[in-house]
Design a binder for these strands. Structure first.
Lengths: 339, 339
DNA sequence: CCGGAAGTTGCAAAGGATTACATTTGTTGC
DNA sequence: GCAACAAATGTAATCCTTTGCAACTTCCGG
């Protein structure tokens, strides 16, 4: 069931059928109609392998992500896919599972499929994988790399802006004892967030004392652990900003198990603004990071690369604070607001 | 940079290089080594389009799912991908977004890519899509279809067993006023769950009274709404089983907003056992549905189809109850257990 | 040292679409 | 009604691998 069968049925050449398939303008409307009828009647399905072999385009883009199970990524994938779909492009993704080896492997697999673009949304890279990319001229876009890599565009998040909003919000509520729950130091994205928090504190003039940073794992379990550590202190902080929502949820749980009430005893702020924030009790105040915006910038960056258009090499995304019920004036609801 | 370049560099023919690439046994070890060296030195990446065009195999399998954002699916995808990866097979998926049109479209796209197998994990099918599948001999496996389709294997979940466990658990705790929160009647999976609940009640001899079924939307918002409805009743049920976890989380939220305590005032059971169950307060008792098992059965069903092996046409998965903190003896913790 | 089997390798024909270029058909102005 | 040009269509080469078959080696027993 190939294009030849269709051509015969429609009484044209394969070239014409191909033109109809590719919506080429140089086909008479009547002819195109005949071809389309033949396609429908024969239930013809074009062979994508042949198409991309010949044309050099695969109409497929690849996403490299850390872990589909982190709700951040499905959101991103969904938006990316929907956008790509509007342009007739399919999407496939590879889970790196935070492993450099799986990253290299993923890059290889995507290149073998001849994808028309790769968005790298994970922060565990590998020299080998990057070199592989460089050897091709496949468009690539990175997310949140601490430094520009191989002259590829890099979409970054202005973490400092985000944390400054958070710290300001807490100060308004009268908090001065503000701590930070960081992610694993091996993750470059976690490290960047930690540094940004410190910078934000400095910018707000809150760095008189020793910076107050706990270390977590970006998972719920880690948050739970830190909650215990936190509340067994003689003089715990009155507010905690977490490097991501998962850990904030863990803190919430840990607090509840210890009988500590949130936000009365501790104001809590997460990062990412996953749907989880609204599912949890009390609903979590969080820094919203728009997946739609990331997806859209990534997609257009890749499209630009495809069409030899100039690539924007810097693109900054601003998080914004979404206030819910996990933050309150210091000292419980009886506390007063600070001007 | 094609196979010919490698062949020349290694001083062999393209056929030999191809054999090395495909791990064919009929190549002398020394030759294979020379070829591998050449491949590495040239940074050669085989062209998958050409490979699958010629061989008829794509080493790609497709997943059709409803919505990546429902945490049920990422789990499934992850397991499926990991399993497929061990067999050198890549995975791509299509979101149907619960739309029949997107389903048809998804099927078409997967067929165009020449996938070696399609797992249909969604329940909005379309005649058109199914017909497209039938026209090919691509292996297909379904999940939870109410009836066998086109002689394709169908993996089903024994919902009745699951709900019987749930009802038994509640009876042990002394509950007799047990209600059910159903999903949208348009979703066949929701309908099947509702029917199974009623069957389970019958099996437990709990069907003396009128069945007590609320209607939801399988989302958090729907659960929240039903909570309001529920607690404004004169004599509300003492236990509620939900068709999925998302709605149970919504009920939890709604209850909390109304100041109703769970499990004291209402025992709550969800379905699926998403990670959400542990993130939420109180942790949700839920019926665990193993994504790993589903993924594994689906994958092997497709593999079987690939190798012209006999296909198992029925495969049943048993959910099991995971008891957490959202269920308690009737009448609050002071209630007595019924023997 | 030969015949034949078994093991390696090469030759060349697919596989199904796209596309540059050639050719045919249609249109327009006069 | 015809030249000249534009539009539509066809021809055939090409994309890169895989693989059936043929050809060549190697190895062994006799």
């Amino acid at each position: 069931m190939d294009i030849l069968a269709v051509a015969r049925k429609a009484g044209v050449s394969t070239a014409t059928v191909s033109r109809v398939l590719n919506a080429s303008p140089k086909v008479r409307a009547a002819t195109a109609e005949r071809v389309r009828t033949a396609i429908a009647e024969l239930n013809y399905v074009p062979n994508n392998s042949a198409r991309s072999l010949r044309s050099g385009r695969s109409n497929l883009m690849g996403l490299l992500i850390s872990d589909v199970r982190n709700p951040f990524f499905p959101d991103l994938i969904e938006h990316f896919e929907s956008l790509a779909g509007q342009h007739g492009i399919d999407v496939t993704f590879v889970n790196t599972g935070y492993s450099e080896e799986r990253f290299s492997n993923g890059v290889r697999r995507l290149l073998e499929r001849g994808v028309d673009g790769i968005a790298i949304l994970t922060s565990e890279l590998s020299r080998e994988g990057i070199d592989r990319l460089r050897a091709t001229n496949t468009p690539v876009v990175f997310l949140n790399q601490p430094t520009v890599i191989g002259n590829y565009p890099n979409i970054t998040v202005d973490y400092v802006k985000g944390f400054r909003d958070a710290v300001d919000h807490l100060r308004m509520l009268g908090h001065s004892r503000i701590a930070f729950l960081s992610g694993p130091p091996t993750l470059s994205s976690a490290t960047r967030r930690r540094k940004a928090f410190l910078a934000a504190m400095r910018a707000c003039g809150m760095d008189k004392e020793e910076p107050w940073v706990f270390e977590g794992d970006h998972k719920i379990a880690g948050g739970r652990l830190v909650a215990q550590q936190l509340f067994s202190m003689a003089k715990p902080p009155t507010a905690l900003i977490c490097s991501n929502d998962m850990m904030a949820v863990g803190v919430l749980q840990g607090a509840s198990q210890l009988g500590v009430r949130i936000p009365d005893a501790l104001s809590l702020i997460g990062f990412d603004d996953l749907f989880l924030c609204e599912a949890v009790q009390p609903a979590l105040t969080s820094l919203h990071l728009s997946r739609q915006e990331i997806a859209s910038r990534a997609f257009y960056a890749l499209q630009a690369g495809r069409e030899d258009m100039p690539q924007a090499h810097a693109s900054v995304i601003l998080p914004h604070l979404v206030v819910r019920s996990s933050t309150a004036p210091v000292g419980g609801s009886k506390g007063k607001l600070k001007r």
